[in-house]
Nucleic acid binder design. Structure first.
Lengths: 252, 252
DNA sequence: TATAGTTGTCTATATCAATAGACAAGTCAT
DNA sequence: ATGACTTGTCTATTGATATAGACAACTATA
């Protein structure tokens, strides 16, 4: 984020429905992600931050307390407050979006955990996306992507139950969508469409992604297709905006 | 957004730093965008909404008041509260991202307004992106994209001042980046990279995009290049998440 | 060992956010 | 006209948010 470059005077809003301490916590997170506040270095002292944002020192302390709770900062009496966390992960999105390979080089460990699965009738929306009859059976998987032990994504995906019967056990065993699809004879697939939006994290996101209330999530809705254009997977994924950014790769 | 599909019981969080009325206003906006609340139709009555979200009627009223202020809803005593606004614009992003052509069919009128321009030395970040020497002169344009009279994007873009001297007047005259670049002999260009994130709108965003405090903006950081790979433009764009979603087109 | 600079704790006060209940005012169908 | 249903307004109370000031506790360094 080019926060430093673009940041102008104001930046903090009152009586918004968003508390000042929450806004300032967001600013600090942005500052860390943008390299404005360097990793392992001390934050400016509380009084300086208070002046910078035009609020009381106690308000800054509330923001810092939230981030300490969250494990982003560490406060040491007499010394200062220090940045613990790393920059945001950059998650590539394109025609060949894959979870595991996409994060290569940025993390040492990554996998997808299957939280739950169920079979249900296809809603209109899902039937259209998968090109199947409305009301026909689909398998829904609830999954969480983890990198180095931290949750980085939370997805709900649907498959045609007829074609992919038992994919939930494959997911549980392999921890990979790509590997699971291989068991069904699909060695390669493409992303046909991705629609992107953002919203506040709801209560479920907070739990699943280990977020603090008020956090923002990026939401993608995607359809994956086989090489000959047959839709196989419909997915809605949520990413914590404070820990992940999406990098759109052009063609492949 | 598949809110209806995915929405589970909980969804509202307390003592978060985000007020309940703000969260509920967000929910209603989501509901409108997802077709959950139909356009021109009445919202459920306040008591019903209050029960649905597990809050007091007055809290719902605060949320509605904010959206009435914003022009999304219209309340009529004795009759009900009605949805005015349309669905979100779907803004395509891909190798050939163009403002005007991308919104074709969704709006009748669209253009880019030049808010201000300046010349400044290139920061490290911008010098790298444009492959020029750090500190050399760059032109910065502040622009706002408008569709049917409503702001839908707010961008800061940088060009090499040497190569694109006077581009600010071209922009002011043509209201189009594509047309302006043509004056400099660039008939076609591609998007090399796009990085995507989200955050709360800051005070400037609120003014420029005519948002209510607490709103969320999608942020893209992009580099455009000529057909032979020479970088020509570096841009940070902000989109109001409540009015715009980004649709990633695959290759072209 | 001072001293400056930092975080931590306490008290007090004012405003905002949320709940609760009651009733007024308007619309619509019967 | 009546009654059911809706939004609008008012009062009261509680807890969270934000400001203000003072001082304690701790760290580093001169």
């Amino acid at each position: 984020m080019g926060a430093k470059l673009i940041e102008r005077a104001s930046s903090i809003e009152r009586r918004n429905g968003v508390s000042l301490w929450r806004q300032i916590a967001d600013k600090i997170l942005q500052g860390i992600a943008s390299g404005d506040f360097t990793e392992n270095a001390a934050l400016p002292p509380e009084v300086a931050l208070a002046e910078r944002y035009g609020v009381n020192r106690h308000t800054v302390r509330s923001a810092i307390a939230a981030l300490v709770q969250e494990g982003v900062l560490k406060a040491e009496q007499g010394r200062g407050t220090f940045v613990l966390s790393r920059k945001r992960l950059s998650y590539p999105i394109g025609a060949r979006t894959r979870f595991s390979s996409g994060l290569q080089g940025q993390t040492t460990e990554r996998h997808i955990a299957l939280l739950s699965s169920s079979t249900e009738p296809a809603s209109r929306r899902i039937a259209e996306a998968l090109s199947i009859a409305r009301g026909s059976s689909v398998i829904r998987l609830e999954t969480r992507g983890e990198a180095d032990g931290h949750p980085v994504s939370r997805a709900t995906t649907w498959f045609d139950a007829k074609r992919f019967a038992g994919i939930e056990t494959a997911m549980a065993e392999t921890g990979s969508i790509t590997a699971s699809l291989m068991r069904f004879g699909i060695n390669d697939y493409l992303r046909r469409s991705t629609v992107l939006s953002a919203r506040h994290a709801d209560a479920d996101d907070l739990v699943d992604l280990e977020l603090q209330p008020g956090a923002i999530v990026l939401v993608t809705i995607a359809i994956n297709v086989t090489m000959d254009g047959q839709p196989i997977q419909f997915a809605e994924s949520r990413f914590p905006a404070e820990r992940v950014e999406l990098k759109l790769s052009a063609g492949d």
